[in-house]
Structure formats: structure tokens, C-alpha cells
Amino acid sequence: MTAVVDRPLDEPELVERARRGDFRAWETIVRRYQGIAFRTAYVLSGNAADAEEAAQDGFVKAYRALGRFRRGAPLRPWLLRIVANEARNRRRSAGRRERLALRAAVEDRPGDAVPSPEAALLAREARERLLAAVERLSDDHRDVVACRYFLQLSEEETAAALGVRRGTVKSRLARALERLREELS
């Protein structure tokens, strides 16, 4: 007797189905990547409403561009590129970049020694100084720092999201870190 196993479709199958007009396959992809898409758009725009619109428009445009998506290529960097482009377009048209903020309370991790209130305050101030220095960078430098460290994207994904070569990511990152060291010294 053969058991019928309900297995989740892998990504290339989902993409192929979506390409043939299977909306439910695209829905699965949207739900799989909407978290990182929204976070990417938010970190680039600093605005939740713009990020939501950018991520939504990005998924719609990506679906319509599936015919141009190279079979077998990783989907996530391609999606992030479209969403990031939408977010940066909104930032440009708004003529401003909203500042990011630190989380209100950083939870203690198990095993961490509990800092004194004074030490916690100093650590918080140091983190805020660092974030303020990142926000003072040029858009190109700030975006590469945000993608690599805040979103923890790989070099390849950062290059895809920002629409530049990997070499450009490396050189921008080196210059951004140098600028930050100067600012903080």
C-alpha cells in the first residue's frame, strides 16, 4: 500500500507553478519572504507605511516579471532587489530619509551578567551614538551598512538588493566603516 505524503513544494516548483499562473504558489512565496521583504524596505526607508507599500508593490511587480526570472537562480536576492528598489524610490520621492531607532529594551540573554543601571545606560548611549553616526553617512554608505549588519544579508544579497556588484559592496563597506571610525574616534 502506498502512503500519500503531503510534502511542501520546494522553491523552483513554486516558481514554475506561479509562472504558469498558479496564484496559490505565489501566495506561498509571498508568505515565505514577506518578513525579510518588509524589514529590508523598512530599514531602507525608515517608514513603516512606505515599507508596507514598497514590499506589496515589489511582490506584485516580481510576479509580473517572473517571465524574466532566470530558472534555477535563487529567488530571495531577486525579490529583495525589486523590493529595495521600490523602497529607495519612495525615499527619493519623499526627499527625506527617516531615522531608525533602537529597540526600546534589549532583553538580557541567558548567561549574560546583569549590568548595573549605570553600565546599562552607558551601553545604551554608546549604541545610540553608533546608530546616529550610521544615519549621518551618505545614502550609499548607510544602505550597505544597514543591509550587511542590520539585516544581516550576505554580500551577494546586499549586492542584489542595492543593484551593485559585490566588489562595490566591499569597497563601499570599507569606506563606510572607515568613516564611522573617524566619527566615533
Binding site: R31, G35, A48, A55, F59, L100, L102, R127, L180
Partner: peptide, 26 residues
């Protein structure tokens, strides 16, 4: 410096469920 950047915890609002609006449009 890279370790400190990685340890920054940026406040990101919880993202919405985009699927219903995306599906409606496509």
C-alpha cells in the same frame, strides 16, 4: 566596530500580512 554594528538592535515594526492584497492585485 563590525561586532558592535551587528549587535545594534533596530526597532522594526511587525510587518503586515501582504498576501491578501498581493493576490487581489495579481
Amino acid at each position: 566596530l563590525e561586532r558592535r554594528l551587528l549587535a545594534l538592535e533596530i526597532a522594526v515594526p511587525e510587518g503586515p500580512d501582504l498576501a491578501p492584497a498581493v493576490l487581489a492585485r495579481i
